[in-house]
Computed example of a mutant assay.
Amino acid sequence: MGLVAAAILTIASLAYIFWPSENSFSQRAKSRLDYLRERKDAIYENLRDLNFEYKAGKYPEEDYATQRGLLENEAANIMAEMDTLERA
């Protein structure tokens, strides 16, 4: 009798723990603005990493200036597009 009760309790506990309460695989669709925000965050992180590596002596001056300019231009384009989308 005790073994049956333990088995039922175990099955009920496992069902409670692992039974999905809602569809965990459904995600809301990302908008263009969500994508741009994520991209902006990634670019800012890349700029921080670039500055750190430059100060550590891993980048020559010319490469640092070129890479920084490219990242800043991309960030400016993303910010401009975000402003356009937020106004609409």
Rank of each mutant, 00 (worst) to 15 (best):
P60N: 15
A29M: 11
W19A: 06
D34H: 02
A42D: 10
L47K: 02
N73D: 15
N46I: 01
N77H: 07
E62K: 11
E72S: 06
Y54H: 14
A42L: 13
L9P: 07
P60R: 07
A5D: 11
L14C: 07
L3N: 13
G69K: 01
A12H: 00
A12L: 08
D41A: 14
F25R: 06
N23R: 01
A7C: 07
M79Y: 07
Q67R: 15
S24G: 12
F52V: 12
L3V: 06
L70Q: 13
Y59Q: 01
E45P: 04
V4A: 15
A15W: 10
Y59R: 08
L50D: 06
D49G: 04
Y35L: 11
W19F: 07
I8M: 12
P60W: 05
N73R: 14
L36H: 08
F52T: 08
A15N: 07
Y64D: 14
P60S: 14
A29N: 10
E45Y: 08
R28S: 14
I78P: 02
E86H: 01
L3T: 10
R28V: 06
E22I: 00
S21V: 00
I78K: 00
Y54Q: 07
D63E: 14
A12W: 01
A65D: 10
Y54M: 09
E72Y: 03
I8K: 08
A7I: 09
A88H: 02
Y44T: 02
I8P: 13
I78F: 06
A29T: 09
L14V: 03
D49S: 11
L70H: 09
A5H: 09
V4W: 15
D34Y: 00
L85E: 04
R68D: 05
A76F: 10
I17W: 01
L70C: 06
Q27V: 10
L36E: 03
M79N: 12
I43A: 01
F52G: 02
A12G: 06
P20G: 03
Y59V: 13
S21W: 05
K30H: 05
D83M: 05
A12D: 00
I43Y: 08
G57I: 04
R87M: 08
Y16K: 12
P20F: 05
Y16M: 13
E72F: 01
F52K: 12
Q27N: 14
A6Q: 06
I17C: 06
A6N: 08
A56R: 09
F52D: 12
E86A: 03
E74A: 07
S31C: 01
A76P: 00
E38N: 05
L70A: 14
M79L: 15
E45A: 13
R87D: 11
P20W: 04
N51G: 14
R28Q: 13
N23H: 02
L33V: 12
L14W: 03
L71I: 09
L14M: 10
I78R: 01
A5L: 15
P60M: 12
E72I: 02
F18C: 04
P60H: 08
L33G: 04
A6E: 09
E38V: 10
